[in-house]
Write a protein that binds this DNA or RNA. Structure first.
Lengths: 239, 239
DNA sequence: TGCCATGTGTGCGGTAACGAACATTATTCA
DNA sequence: TGAATAATGTTCGTTACCGCACACATGGCA
């Protein structure tokens, strides 16, 4: 069984008072999340909810013709499965592990039970939901208006924020799927970034050399989402 | 003061038990919503929440360079201001009346007070939130993968569903702003639809002649959103 | 060691949408 | 009735991205 202190590794669990986490602890287990793990498929009833720790989970939509696009990413700042709290038992999105690591799993029933008690968990989950909505909305406009290059920068920054390292294990093919663009488009944009000395990469490994330049070259979307996420996270739990 | 029966005109209010609506009634007032009315601006604390009746409200993101894109539309199936319920006091989006009509207004404080009582209102609002999330996410992928023509069809269908008529009061310029594309692009797509006899239009008035053809020519996004919205709406209030 | 799957680079024709400029037609209002 | 404004139509060069095809390089594995 996990120890209380371990729950600190996820921002939502960390923000809960000890009274609540103590109650939840017996129902939480650590699981490993290898790259590509599918946490849920569109339309499928979701049994459990997941709290990423050092992993990143992508929520993506897959279209009839197979084309896809990521609509948001979840790291240890959030949880996967908010639609459980929203009352729908499923979503139209696919949740897939984009960066391997571990996560905590809790049964959906336990989760909504605690959510329904109207404790801090509810406050935190709703607030996180708003952050998620912001990210989705910004992704929508970004898809409309920004270049592949800008989006690549945004995407790298979002990933960096959710890992505590400057190294990403990511093929360009995978990134292309997330952004919903051609792999060649990513190759070209990444190549330029490498020439400029902002990143260096090598067969599925990306190392970020100059985070600031990356932020400069990114579209505003990254910062908008980050600001809103920070704002929501820094709000007092009771209000 | 409004009468109880009038609240039936908004799906969320209509689904509430009499006990709750009776309590809310004194705090709800009818307001007129002329085209272009801004219900809230990004970052601005929102005082009130709005329940559209025969009007349509667009949530849109405006970028630094002035470019914009609609991320979702709200009609009498929903409400404007869910971020109030989510606990953030503002959003990054702009809410603007896209089709004139009336709406009901309630003070945000009363709203969250009732929301916090954990009544049916909470269930309904959360469920609606999920529908909204679905719409945003689908908009994101639609922006990525579909043509202006397909998106125009989708957008017209979304609007028709929220009005009980086949006539829209809409300039192509306005539609272009919503879709985040050039006005000329809309002109071209609309021109084709008119030649095909699917719609006919005339200086700010669009009349839909053949809804079925419109649905055929639209991308799948419309139907996905509609199905999910219907699914969520038809769920029992208690669960 | 050599093979092969995987990841990346590159070039090419095609196209949807862009930005800009301008023409044309309705509608409003002085 | 005429002028101004608003809405739509049309054209043109440009661009970002697509789909496809294929070359090349690397690293794991037989």
């Amino acid at each position: 069984m996990l120890k209380l202190v371990q729950l600190q590794r996820n921002a939502i669990l960390a923000a809960l008072p000890a009274e609540v986490t103590t109650r939840l602890l017996p129902h939480i287990e650590e699981i490993s999340l290898p790259l590509g793990t599918v946490l849920y498929e569109p339309g499928q009833t979701m049994r459990d909810v997941y709290f990423p720790i050092d992993s990143i989970v992508s929520l993506l939509y897959v279209m009839e013709n197979g084309a896809s696009a990521e609509i948001s990413v979840v790291g240890n700042e959030g949880l996967v499965g908010i639609s459980r709290a929203m009352g729908g038992q499923s979503t139209s999105s696919r949740a897939v592990v984009q960066s391997a690591g571990i996560g905590y799993r809790m049964s959906g029933r336990r989760f909504i039970e605690e959510f329904g008690r109207h404790t801090d968990l509810m406050t935190l989950v709703l607030r996180y939901t708003q952050a998620l909505i912001t990210q989705m909305a910004q992704t929508a406009v970004c898809n409309r208006h920004h270049t592949i290059s800008q989006q690549l920068c945004r995407w790298l920054l979002l990933s960096l924020d959710r890992l505590n390292t400057d190294d990403l294990i990511m093929t360009q093919e995978l990134i292309a799927n997330m952004l919903g663009v051609r792999r060649e488009g990513v190759t070209e944009a990444a190549g330029r970034l490498q020439k400029m000395g902002v990143i260096e990469y090598h067969r599925g490994h990306i190392h970020v050399l100059d985070r600031d330049r990356l932020a400069e070259m990114s579209c505003e979307c990254y910062q908008v989402v980050k600001n809103e996420t920070d704002r929501l996270q820094s709000m007092p739990t009771h209000c």
